[in-house]
Design a protein around this nucleic acid. Structure first.
Length: 280
DNA sequence: CATTTCACCTGGTGGC
DNA sequence: TGCCACCAGGTGAAAT
């Protein structure tokens, strides 16, 4: 469900509540879920570990884990990671153990402090993964981070590509973290049609797009993300950026800039919203 | 290789 | 109220 701003908001919330806590008990539902790591391996790996920190990479929530047991020397060195991808409907919540168990709860981590981390996912598009860190690098998403990528590198991502710019924005191998909402919103702000071929955009248009994306993503993070249907942060609180959307899910409604009705088309199989007047 | 399409799931909404 | 078609923030495998 969530894109970069929502994942960032959740990761910050979870980090603030569980950083330094220890996982005492792990539970997984029997419901079949196509995890990247089997439930039993995750359960075994997570039990006893300390959560050193929680952060976002692309659309992934990465929990850095310290060794199980008492290990004073390497206390702050992560030796494993628990990686959570929320798919479309996934939630990662920090609750008390007494709280009612929501339908589609697939994982529960009991913590020493008494808190509980829960993974809930109706559609089961989410993915959980447990990794031991040997000497290898930490987890990194394939694409560039859209909020820190520079002008030249950003433009380079699209050079020579024939696919629609909207489809390119959604490709996690190019940029990681951009989904349907922020692709549409950034293209609106940059005044670019979603179906334009990526490789045909001018240098100016690409720079406008990069800056629009940065602005839209940081505004959304500031407002706690977009709650379109059921997105909530680690405390179950909704975001407010959906109130700022200019085009996304506003089919037929007047453009906030010129009053023209917003159009909906299909690009790369995804509902795509744009203003026919403001965008090209 | 690049690009497109489709399957994977459940739930909410709006029309009849 | 019920039934049905359609829509939904994502990804990765299969097809083109």
């Amino acid at each position: 469900m969530p894109e970069l701003p929502e994942v960032e908001t959740i990761a910050r919330g979870v980090n603030a509540r569980v950083r330094g806590d220890r996982i005492t008990e792990v539970w997984f539902s029997k419901h079949k879920q196509p995890f990247k790591t089997s439930a039993s391996i995750q359960a075994k790996g997570l039990a006893g570990r300390t959560i050193l920190s929680v952060h976002r990479t692309g659309k992934h929530i990465v929990c850095e884990l310290g060794d199980a047991g008492l290990n004073e020397t390497s206390k702050n060195e992560p030796t494993a990671q628990w990686i959570v991808h929320l798919g479309m409907t996934g939630r990662l919540l920090v609750t008390t153990p007494e709280g009612p168990i929501a339908a589609h709860t697939h994982a529960r981590l009991s913590l020493e402090s008494g808190r509980e981390v829960r993974f809930v996912d109706a559609r089961r598009f989410g993915r959980l993964e447990f990794r031991e860190l040997k000497r290898t690098e930490g987890f990194s998403a394939a694409g560039q981070e859209p909020m820190t990528v520079g002008t030249v590198e950003f433009a380079g991502l699209f050079r020579g590509r024939k696919l629609a710019i909207k489809a390119a924005l959604l490709n996690q191998g190019l940029l990681s973290g951009v989904g349907n909402i922020y692709a549409d919103e950034s293209l609106f702000q940059a005044g670019i049609r979603p179906r334009r071929r990526a490789g045909r955009l001018t240098r100016d248009e690409l720079e406008r797009l990069r800056l629009s994306l940065l602005a839209v993503l940081s505004d959304s993070i500031r407002l706690g993300g977009s709650s379109v249907s059921d997105y909530v942060d680690a405390d179950g609180v909704r975001g407010f950026f959906q109130l700022e959307h200019c085009v996304y899910l506003r089919t037929g409604q007047p453009c906030r800039q010129c009053g023209t009705p917003i159009k909906r088309i299909l690009v790369a199989g995804r509902g795509t919203h744009y203003c026919p007047k403001c965008q090209g």
